[in-house]
């Protein structure tokens, strides 16, 4: 639908200044949940730069994603303190138990999994953030409990996304 207007509006928001490419792509991702190829093409055309330039940026920075995200967002801190307190093993367990890659989404679309370097809440280590809610002092067991408790919406939402 309003893809064109969205890109146009974002470009105008930053006066079409190429230096603001990263904020533009961040806004685009915030609006759509991920960076769709069509929109990146439109943005590249509008800014008169090659698509490869946008692709380079999108793949360099870990916060950009080129595929739709899951229904929930799971962030696991694997910073030094969390690592010392067992975050590595928790990360491994999540990947195995839910068949999800770091930075990827579970096959059923339940959640996207992002291990990050440090959320700066070291007093709470190990920390997991689910949809913005912080869980402190997590263990393998408590993580499993939290993630299994996440509600999975009806697949109807999926069909809409594909249009």
């Amino acid at each position: 639908m309003a893809d064109e207007t969205l890109v146009e509006e974002i470009v105008r928001r930053y006066d079409g200044e190429i230096g603001m490419l990263i904020p533009m792509m961040q806004d685009l991702q915030t609006a759509c949940g991920y960076l769709a190829v069509d929109q990146l093409k439109r943005l590249a055309e509008r800014l008169e730069v090659p698509l490869s330039r946008l692709y380079a940026v999108a793949t360099f920075y870990s916060s950009f994603r080129l595929a739709p995200k899951g229904q929930h967002e799971v962030t696991l801190c694997v910073g030094t303190v969390c690592h010392l307190k067992g975050a590595g093993a928790i990360s491994e367990m999540i990947r195995e138990a839910f068949k999800v890659e770091a930075g990827g989404t579970t096959p059923d679309g339940l959640f996207s999994f992002q291990p990050v370097n440090c959320v700066g809440a070291c007093a709470l280590a190990p920390v997991m953030i689910v949809d913005g809610k912080y869980y402190d002092g997590v263990s393998k067991d408590s993580v499993l409990k939290i993630l299994h408790g996440l509600p999975l919406a009806e697949p109807a939402a999926k069909g809409e996304g594909n249009k």
């Binding site: 910073g79 030094t80 303190v81 690592h83 370097n117 440090c118 700066g120 809440a121 070291c122």
Partner: peptide, 11 residues
């Protein structure tokens, strides 16, 4: 861009 894990003074 305080990136060091375990550091959060700037934040």
């Amino acid at each position: 861009d305080e990136g060091d894990p375990g550091a959060f003074m700037d934040r």
